[in-house]
Every structure is written in structure tokens, then in C-alpha cells.
């Protein structure tokens, strides 16, 4: 039993490290979602109105939508490189549970996309005149919400990995599933601004994360097997 547990942990750590190393060797791909985040947020003051009061009202939802879109954009690359060079097939053939492999890959991916977005978000929030009281709500809701986004996005990425043009399709599949996270995330920021208690929002985001952690890797694993064998 303990032997098996250590091997699970090892499997996780190895896959995690491998993905991190690979990601850092292609730094431009790492930065692209962040630049996308920045550009989308910049578009709104230009396209709608640069007035501080208006932007402050728009900021919680806008930051969340932009974070959601840039997570989605980065999802496509989650299994693509592994699929192209055949290492995904090796991972599927290994006797280790796919659940752990998927979990490790998604965690590494989240570190690059979701966590990075969370850290960049305050800068953009200042540019959008988000009141300072909203800042902790924004950071914490992104911290709790983006892992769920990555986990759900992984299902879409796994379903479309074998297709030549999966880019638009993956957003079609995944965006409707993102709606609950968006609702609770942006509501948390709004509540933080108005000074309402935040505990409930974080509890709900945490519940969504727990559910996604338990179920999404299973669905992703099944989807990967289907995509690769098909």
C-alpha cells in the first residue's frame, strides 16, 4: 500500500517536473496567454469608455471574462505537443493511472496560466480603477477559480486533441461549462467592493474546485483514450 502511494506521488512529481521543464523551454508560449489577457483588458477602455467610474463598475466582470478567455486560449496546448510527438501514447500505455498523469499535467499547466494570471490581475485591476477593497476578493477568487477552469478546459483539450482545427471547437465545448465559475468569481469581487461577506463565494468556488478535482481528470482520461485510439 505505502509502496503504491509513493509510486503515485513519484508519478505525479515526475510528470509535473517534465511539463514544467518543457514549458520553460518554450518561453514565448508561456507568455502568450498573459499578453492576450493584457490586450483584451486594454480593448475595453478603448472600445467602450475610458471613464474611471464606468470602468470600475465593469472591472470585476471584465477581469474575470478576460482571465477565462486567456485560460481557454492556453488550454489547447495542454496535450497537443505530447500528441504530436507520440509521448501521449506512451503515457496512455503506461501501467500508472491516467488520473494522476492528467492531474499532474493540469497542475503544471495551471501554474503557468492560472497562477500567472492571478498574479498579473492586480496590475490590470489598477488600470481599470477597481477599488482597492476589491483586490483581495479578485486575487482569492482567481486563485480558487482558475484551477477549476484548467480542469474543465482539460476535458475539452482532450476531446479535441486529435483534430486538426480544435481551436474554435474547444471554446464551443468548454465555455458553457465555465459559466458557474464566472458567476461566483465575479460576484465575489463585486461583494468585496461593496464590503459584503465573502465566505460564501469562496466556499462555492472551493466546492466547484473539489468537484472538478474529483471528476474532471476521469473525464479527461477517458477523452484522451478515445481521442488517441480514434
Amino acid at each position: 500500500m505505502s509502496n503504491q502511494q509513493t509510486s503515485f506521488a513519484k508519478l505525479f512529481v515526475h510528470t509535473f517536473k517534465r511539463d514544467l521543464v518543457l514549458a520553460f523551454r518554450r518561453k514565448s508560449e508561456l507568455v502568450n496567454p498573459l499578453i492576450f489577457f493584457l490586450i483584451v483588458v486594454t480593448l475595453f477602455p478603448i472600445g467602450v469608455s475610458p471613464e474611471p467610474q464606468f470602468l470600475a463598475e465593469l472591472a470585476p466582470g471584465l477581469l474575470w471574462v478576460a482571465a477565462l478567455l486567456s485560460t481557454l486560449l492556453s488550454m489547447e496546448s495542454l496535450f497537443k505537443a505530447d500528441f504530436d510527438d507520440g509521448s501521449l501514447e506512451q503515457l496512455l500505455l503506461s501501467p500508472q493511472p491516467l488520473f494522476m498523469v492528467v492531474l499532474a499535467k493540469v497542475s503544471a499547466h495551471w501554474l503557468m496560466s492560472g497562477l500567472a494570471l492571478t498574479l498579473v490581475a492586480p496590475v490590470l485591476a489598477v488600470m481599470l480603477f477597481l477599488p482597492a477593497e476589491g483586490m483581495p476578493g479578485l486575487m482569492l477568487s482567481l486563485l480558487l477559480g482558475t484551477p477549476t477552469l484548467s480542469l474543465i478546459g482539460a476535458i475539452g483539450a482532450a476531446l479535441t486533441v486529435g483534430l486538426r482545427r480544435g481551436g474554435v471547437l474547444i471554446s464551443l465545448l468548454v465555455l458553457p461549462l465555465y459559466i458557474p465559475v464566472l458567476i461566483f468569481g465575479s460576484s465575489a469581487v463585486q461583494a468585496a467592493i461593496t464590503g459584503l461577506p465573502l465566505g460564501g463565494y469562496f466556499a462555492l468556488l472551493g466546492a466547484l474546485l473539489a468537484l472538478a478535482l474529483a471528476l474532471a481528470p476521469l473525464a479527461t482520461g477517458a477523452a484522451l483514450r478515445i481521442s488517441v485510439s480514434g
Binding site: 476535458i155 476531446l159 465545448l173 477523452a223 478515445i226 485510439s229 480514434g230
Partner: peptide
């Protein structure tokens, strides 16, 4: 494959 993938989704 389409049937299986759709089922998962």
C-alpha cells in the same frame, strides 16, 4: 470515435 467523444462530453 465521434460517438464516444460526444458521450463523454
Amino acid at each position: 470515435t465521434a460517438g464516444q467523444a460526444t458521450a463523454v462530453l
